[in-house]
């Protein structure tokens, strides 16, 4: 019994040693895989950025689930599989670039909406808001030039042949009406009245420009360029008295 046992044990030991040797030889063929099974494997696999992205949530699952079996398969083609997953058709060499792009793309996609949405909203607001309010302060420099040209503009309007006599008379009537409204405005300034006056002023100027633009485009351009300067004169009580 003892002999059979010892024989069996020795045979078993031999079998085990042979198996161990075989396993070592088989393990030596892919040395990297054996190392990856150890501590180094986890370190090499985890730093790969791709699995971290996709498996940020799965990390807990990987840690809880058997870690070693998937890692050997992943560790050998560690860079390629994720690349092929994300890039799809592009090969590995390009895939790294694709990864870099895609790594940078998600932030770009997440950021641009924030950046693009505000600019579209913020840019128009300053553009729309200032013109109405900043129209008054800005024309200060051109106002002086316009006051100098005011008399010449009036003369040119009288002498232009682009507008008929009847039309000139009619325009003069409307200008006088508007000036009368401005006089009333300066007697009792009202913000709402100023808005209405601005509309009437713009409309009258539009009529003049439409009449001039074909027959006397130079005069039309000069009047159009002095629009704000004229408005500043009309709205300024002191300047208006001098008219």
């Amino acid at each position: 019994m003892l002999g059979s046992v010892t024989l069996g044990n020795s045979a078993g030991a031999v079998v085990v040693s042979v198996l161990v040797l075989l396993s070592h030889t088989s393990d030596r063929t892919p040395p990297g895989s054996r190392r990856t099974d150890g501590v180094a494997g986890r370190e090499t696999v985890r730093p790969v950025p791709v699995p971290e992205k996709e498996a940020e949530s799965p990390r807990s699952g990987e840690r809880a689930t058997p870690v070693e079996p998937p890692k050997p398969s992943v560790s050998a083609p560690s860079a390629k599989p994720p690349v092929s997953r994300k890039s799809g058709t592009p090969p590995g060499g390009i895939a790294t670039g694709g990864l870099a792009q895609k790594e940078s793309e998600p932030p770009q996609e997440s950021q641009p909406p924030k950046a693009s949405a505000p600019p579209t909203e913020t840019v128009p607001r300053p553009e729309t808001a200032p013109p109405t309010e900043a129209a008054l302060p800005s024309p200060a420099p051109p106002a002086t030039a316009a006051t100098l040209d005011l008399s010449s503009l009036e003369t040119r309007l009288r002498e232009t042949k682009a507008i008929g006599v009847f039309t000139k008379l009619s325009l003069k009537n409307q200008v006088d009406d508007l000036l009368e409204e401005f006089r009333e405005f300066h007697k009792s300034p009202d913000r709402s009245m100023l808005t209405r006056l601005r509309q009437a002023y713009d409309l009258l100027l539009l009529k003049v420009l439409s009449l001039l633009q074909d027959g006397d485009p130079v005069l039309a351009r000069d009047i159009s360029s002095s629009r704000e300067a004229l408005w500043s004169i009309l709205t300024d009580p002191d300047k208006f008295k001098d008219l």
């Binding site: 507008i163 009847f166 039309t167």
Partner: peptide, 12 residues
């Protein structure tokens, strides 16, 4: 010219 003038006046 007169016709244009009158047209403009009526439009104004």
């Amino acid at each position: 010219a007169v016709l244009r003038d009158l047209t403009a006046v009526i439009a104004l």
